[in-house]
């Protein structure tokens, strides 16, 4: 019984001597709290840090949606160019004729001749 009483007295004494956190700890906890709070409340970043160039490129085309559209069109053009599906050839012949040549860049002479 005496030992039990001793233990109860030790518990009571310990409750009267709470372990107080240091000011440094409180400051560290507050700093963590504000840092996490800022992260949570801050608006989301468009592009990840490692893909900054992709984010920049996307902004030129008005966002990632525009960039995806341009990329898709480029891929489609390459596929049509290499595969040359028969229907596309027939369509070109019907519209332009089988022997049509198109000059995409005027000759230098023509340009010089205007002087």
């Amino acid at each position: 019984m005496e030992e039990q009483k001793t233990l109860d007295n030790l518990f009571a004494a310990a409750r009267l001597r709470p372990v107080e956190p240091s000011e440094a700890l409180m400051a560290r906890v507050l700093a963590d709290a504000f840092a996490e709070q800022t992260k949570a409340v801050a608006p989301p970043v468009l592009a990840a840090k490692g893909n900054w160039w992709l984010g920049g490129l996307a902004s030129v085309f008005g966002g990632f949606g525009g960039l995806a559209g341009v990329g898709g069109a480029a891929v489609a053009g390459l596929v049509l160019g290499f595969v040359q599906p028969a229907n596309v050839t027939y369509l070109a012949d019907a519209l332009l004729g089988p022997e049509t040549s198109v000059t995409l860049i005027p000759s230098v002479d023509l340009l010089m001749g205007e002087e």
Partner: peptide, 17 residues
Amino acid sequence: TAATRALTLRLVPRVMG
């Protein structure tokens, strides 16, 4: 921010103890 301070003052002593 007031909630941040209040939670810190309330909980850290208990956690630390």
